[in-house]
Nucleic acid binder design. Sequence first.
RNA 1: CGAGCUGGCCAGGCAGUCGCCGCUUCGAAAGAAGGGGAGGAAAGUCCGGGCUCCAUAGGGCAGGGUGCCAGAUAACGUCUGGGCGGCGAAAGCCGACGGAAAGUGCAGCAGAAAGGAAACCGCCAUUCGCUUGCGGAUGGUAAGGGUGAAAAGGUGCGGUAAGAGCGCACCGCGGCUCUGGUAACAGAGUCGGCGAUGGUAAACCCCACCUGGAGCAAGGCCAAAUAGAGUCCCAUUAAGGCGCGGCCCGCGCUGGGACCGGGUAGGCUGCUUGACCCGGACGGUGACGUCCGGGCUAGAUGAAUGACUGUCCACGACAGAACCCGGCUUAUCGGCCAGUUCGCCUU
Length: 126
Amino acid sequence: MVVNGHPRAHRLLTAGDFRSVFDQVDVKAACPELLLLARTNADAQARLGFIISRKNCRSAVARNRVKRIAREIFRTHYADWPQLDIILMARPGIDQLSKEDLHRLIAKQLQRLTRRWHKSQTAAAE
RNA sequence: CGAGCUGGCCAGGCAGUCGCCGCUUCGAAAGAAGGGGAGGAAAGUCCGGGCUCCAUAGGGCAGGGUGCCAGAUAACGUCUGGGCGGCGAAAGCCGACGGAAAGUGCAGCAGAAAGGAAACCGCCAUUCGCUUGCGGAUGGUAAGGGUGAAAAGGUGCGGUAAGAGCGCACCGCGGCUCUGGUAACAGAGUCGGCGAUGGUAAACCCCACCUGGAGCAAGGCCAAAUAGAGUCCCAUUAAGGCGCGGCCCGCGCUGGGACCGGGUAGGCUGCUUGACCCGGACGGUGACGUCCGGGCUAGAUGAAUGACUGUCCACGACAGAACCCGGCUUAUCGGCCAGUUCGCCUU
């Protein structure tokens, strides 16, 4: 396992950070339970933020579970992610998934997002 | 030992690795070390209080809330003790439990009649008719039948034409007196025959007591940006600045600076030492209070308290702090302890 931390510099912190992603979404990855939105940033490192509403995920315990699992994946594989500001949005039904399913799903979607970003970068370069 | 009742407690343990958020120490910094880091309900937001800002001379009305009595408390719709009623064999549990003799309203169906009543079937008396045991008329009667949640005290005896608190006894109800109790209330005595006072107040209402409004996104501080009403200084047909340009000329545009004043983004604060926790003594039946000693036990703000590995077992429920307390209610895998009731067995 690659050993990494998850300091504040690796997170989206302010309302402005979130707005900038919504204003210009470069890549996204979607599935029924969650949606990833991302924008290339200037810091040359990946940052992660969450939007998990009470409407889509009623229990506070379930909301915490999603965030912890996502952070854990983001942290342990930090070297894999390109210079993106990523927002993870929860969709209805995410609170029905087990811990194992959530882990698999989030890892898969993050990898999809990364692949799409690399593809778009090479396309832009040509 | 079994069945039950009441109260309290725990909420997987241990070890390692990697993370996250405060704190302390060291360090110029990067960072390092040490130590701490969700709950019994953190929840629902249903009550009460603190705190903050706004409003407010005093009083009343309206609106809202509470509702047996006494006490506890910062306060409460909470808690404790007591009373009354109900359930249970008991321990114990449950109860919006003030007023219907101030007024207004409401009550489906059934039933003859539903509120200052009423004669459908009956029962009885008188009387008329005849086919002599049936029909009619007048009156008496609430004992019986039937309807209903409810038919205006109940049971028994007497009484009567048949009946009826018509009379009597006991019970119930109401008034008064006395006794016990702070009180709710209870007990005893006495009077009243009981057409008095039917039910419903989670119907309006009456009575007593309580009650301003908004909430930590409260509120306070710093403050890029950017309107400017203002003050001061400098310049005042200029100089300077900006644009065109390699430079000069030239052309075009334009007063400059500081303070003040707001206050957006953002940051800081409020933010955890408190009606706190633990132990002891004393007072009180108890809730609780007083005193003494000791302790510091999350404080985040895109929001931490987690993940993985090993191991053990009874294989782990409901669930995540957001200003802080006191309750209530609801969710919850299991386990432990204490007290208590009943039954069975043994001595």
